[in-house]
Design a protein around this nucleic acid. Structure first.
Lengths: 199, 199
DNA sequence: TGGCAAAACGGACCACGGTCCGCTTTTCTT
DNA sequence: AAGAAAAGCGGACCGTGGTCCGTTTTGCCA
C-alpha cells in the first residue's frame, strides 16, 4: 500500500525497454537498406523482419503498419533538409531576407519531395502525419510570411503556398506534362502574388 | 487473303462484347449499392463480384484493380456536378460573370470533394487520373482565368488555385483543425490574390 | 445452320499486410 | 538474489487484392 515515491511530471511517455529499442534500430536499419536496394515499392514486411532477424509481430508493434514504417524511413531522410532550414547556412537557413529564404525554401522543398517521391507515396497518409514533414514546412512558411508582414489569414496562405509542392499535386500536374523548371517558375509567381510583391 | 472491307477510322477502340457490357453494368451497379450501404472502405472485391453474380476474374478484367473500380463509381457520382458546371443554371453554369462563376465553382468543388471524400481516398491515384475529375476542374478553371484576363502562366495558376481544394491537402489541413467555412473564406482570398482583385 | 477463332468467364490459387496469443526477456521491488 | 508483473517477442494464422488458365460464350463467315 505504499504510495509511489515520484510523481511523473506531466505524465511522461513510458520509456522503451532495452530490447525494444535495439529491435527498433535493427528494423529501421534493415528497412532503409532494403528501400535503397530494391525501391520502396518492392519492400515487404516479411523481408524487413527477416533481414532484421526479428519476428513480424515485433515489426508491426514498433511501426504500426507498413505505412508507418515507410514514414519512419522518410522522416529520417528528410531530417537533414529540416536541419538545413532551421540552422544551416543562408539563404536557406537563418540570416537572409525572408523573401529570399522563401524562394530557396520552395525550390529545395520541391527537390526534396521529388527525391523522396516513392517513399512519400508508400507512406500514404502517415507520410504527412506521423512524419512531421508537412507540419514542419507549414510552420516555417507561416513564420516567413509573418516576417514578410503579409496581411490576411497567414496559416491558410501558408497552406496555399505549400499545396502545389505536395506530391499528390505534383503527380497530377506532371501527368499533364509540365517540366519541373517551369513548375518552379510558376510557383515563384504564385508566391509573389500571395505575398503581394509586384516584380 | 482477302483485305479488310472497312478501314477503322482513327484506330477505333475495339467495341465491347455483349456479355462484357452486361457484366460491367452489373458490377458497377453492385459496387455502387455496396458502397452506399457499407461505406467504400468496407467493400471487398469478392463481395462485389458475388453481389453481381459474376466471377472475380471478370471484375478485375473490367476494372483493372480495386482503385479502378472505386474510380469508376466516383466518376459516376461526380458527373452530375460536372454537368451543372458545364450546362447548369448560373452562377455555377454559363451566363454569369467569370469571377462569380469562379467563386461558386470553388465552393461547390469543396463541397463535392468532402462529400466524396471516402471514395476519393479509396480510389487512390486513379481517383484523379482515370476519373476525369481533376482534369475537368483544371480545364474549367483555366477557361475562367482566361476569361478574367489574368496575366501569367494560366495553366500553372489554375493548378495553384485548385490544389488547396484537393482531398490530400484538405486532410492535412483539417488535421491542424480548421473549420471548413474559414477554409472557404481563405480560398476566396487566395483566388483574389491570384487573379489580382483588390477587394 | 454449323463451325471456328477471339473474347470473356470464373474460381482455385498465391502473396502480402496485419492480428493473436502462448512464451521469453526485462525490470523493479524487497 | 529471487520472484513476479509488465513489456516485449515471434511465427502460425487469417482476410483480401490480384493472377492464371482451362472452359464457355459470342460473333462472324461460309
Amino acid at each position: 500500500m505504499s504510495e509511489p515515491h515520484l510523481l511523473p511530471l506531466l505524465d511522461a511517455p513510458p520509456p522503451e525497454r532495452r530490447d525494444a529499442a535495439r529491435n527498433r534500430e535493427r528494423l529501421l536499419g534493415a528497412a532503409k537498406e532494403l528501400v535503397e536496394r530494391d525501391g520502396a515499392h518492392a519492400v515487404t514486411m516479411d523481408a524487413v523482419a527477416t533481414a532484421a532477424g526479428v519476428g513480424k509481430g515485433t515489426l508491426f508493434r514498433r511501426f504500426e503498419s507498413r505505412e508507418g514504417l515507410m514514414a519512419a524511413v522518410l522522416n529520417h531522410s528528410e531530417s537533414e533538409w529540416q536541419a538545413q532550414v532551421m540552422s544551416g547556412p543562408p539563404p536557406l537557413g537563418p540570416g537572409a531576407e525572408p523573401w529570399d529564404r522563401l524562394l530557396v525554401f520552395g525550390r529545395t522543398r520541391l527537390e526534396t519531395t521529388l527525391l523522396h517521391a516513392e517513399l512519400i507515396r508508400e507512406a500514404g497518409r502517415s507520410g504527412a502525419r506521423a512524419s512531421g514533414a508537412y507540419s514542419f514546412a507549414a510552420t516555417h512558411v507561416r513564420y516567413l510570411l509573418s516576417q514578410l508582414r503579409v496581411s490576411g489569414d497567414i496559416p491558410l496562405l501558408a497552406v496555399a503556398i505549400l499545396a502545389p509542392l505536395e506530391l499528390p499535386i505534383l503527380e497530377q500536374v506532371s501527368l499533364d506534362g509540365f517540366p519541373v523548371d517551369r513548375f518552379y517558375d510558376g510557383w515563384v509567381d504564385l508566391a509573389r502574388r500571395v505575398v503581394g510583391r509586384s516584380a
